[in-house]
Computed example of a mutant assay.
Amino acid sequence: MDTAARPAFRNATAADVPALVALIESAYRGDDSRAGWTTEADILEGQRTDPEGVLAVIEGADSKLLAVESGGELVACCQLEHRGSHAYFGMFAVRPTLQGAGLGKVIIAEAERFAREEWGVAEMHMTVISAREDLIAWYIRRGYARTGEMTPFPYGNERFGLPTRDGLQFELLTKKLG
């Protein structure tokens, strides 16, 4: 991908589900994910998402899944969900071989712009596995703040992966938009 070129954003459709699942899995799980820096392969095995979960985001009344393309190829995606006074940002994946080149910054800025301008929300929320200090530091550099508000990882629910260690939890990060 030419990182100088602006990627194209579009709403994902049901036809995109197989490619989106493959992208998300490659960014977070298994050996392919180790080509990038956002891998969860050292703390979680199994799946990151499934076709049903991706389709639910695409078809949700208050959500969208942005597909990000460059040169006609799917290179990234992110979920946005309108939750009243704030938006939720999730399911963020960048092709592992493109990570670290600035694409993530462009995508999160577009997601924030959309949430602020189209939904009129004043804040973006996301949850990150608290053990992912490198990823949390990346979000802090983008203006997000740690809240200390934790939610337990759904141990025993293989739909979210198979933890390889105890003590995993999600931390809420927030950012004022405006």
Results as ranks from 00 to 15, higher is better:
Leu103Gly: 05
Leu103Arg: 02
Asp50Phe: 10
Val54Asp: 02
Ala109Thr: 07
Gly100Cys: 11
Cys78His: 02
Gly30Ala: 08
Gly36Ile: 09
Gln99Ile: 14
Ala109His: 00
Thr97Gln: 08
Glu52Trp: 07
Thr13Met: 02
Ala12Tyr: 00
Arg6Leu: 13
Arg10Ile: 00
Ile24Val: 07
Leu103Met: 05
Val68Asp: 00
Gly72Gln: 03
Ile136Pro: 13
Pro7Asn: 01
Ala4Asn: 09
Gly60Gln: 05
Pro7Gln: 01
Leu23Asp: 11
His86Leu: 08
Thr97Trp: 08
Phe92Cys: 07
Leu65Tyr: 01
Asp31Pro: 13
Ser63Ala: 11
Ile108His: 00
Leu80Arg: 01
Asn11Met: 07
Asp31Ile: 12
Gly100Trp: 00
Arg29Cys: 15
Ala56Leu: 12
Gln79Leu: 15
Gly72Val: 00
Glu45Ala: 15
Thr38Pro: 02
Trp138Val: 13
Thr39His: 11
Ile129Cys: 08
Arg29Trp: 14
Ala4Gln: 06
Trp138Asp: 05
Met124Pro: 00
His125Gly: 08
Glu52Lys: 05
Ala67Tyr: 11
Ala56Phe: 09
Glu110Met: 02
Glu59Trp: 01
Ala4Lys: 05
Trp138Lys: 03
Trp119Gln: 03
Ala115Cys: 03
Lys64Arg: 15
Val17Ile: 14
Thr127Ala: 12
Leu20Val: 06
Arg132Ser: 15
Gly90Met: 14
Gly100Val: 04
Ala15Asp: 12
Gly53Val: 14
Trp37Ala: 14
Glu123Val: 10
Arg95Met: 14
Glu25Leu: 15
Ser26Asn: 07
Thr39Met: 06
Leu66His: 04
Pro51Asp: 12
Phe92His: 06
Ser85Met: 13
Gly120His: 10
Glu52Cys: 05
Ser85Gly: 15
Gly30Pro: 05
Arg113Asp: 06
Lys105Ile: 13
Ala67Asp: 05
Phe9Met: 00
Met91Ala: 13
Trp138Pro: 04
Gln79Ala: 11
Ala122Cys: 08
Thr97Ala: 14
Ala8Lys: 00
Gln99Cys: 15
Gly53Tyr: 09
Ile58Cys: 04
Ala101Cys: 14
Gly90Leu: 11
Arg132Val: 10
Ala56Tyr: 06
Ser33Lys: 11
Glu73Thr: 04
Glu117Leu: 10
Val121Phe: 03
Gly90Ile: 07
His86Gly: 05
Ala111Ser: 04
Gly90Cys: 14
Gly53Asn: 11
Gly36Asn: 07
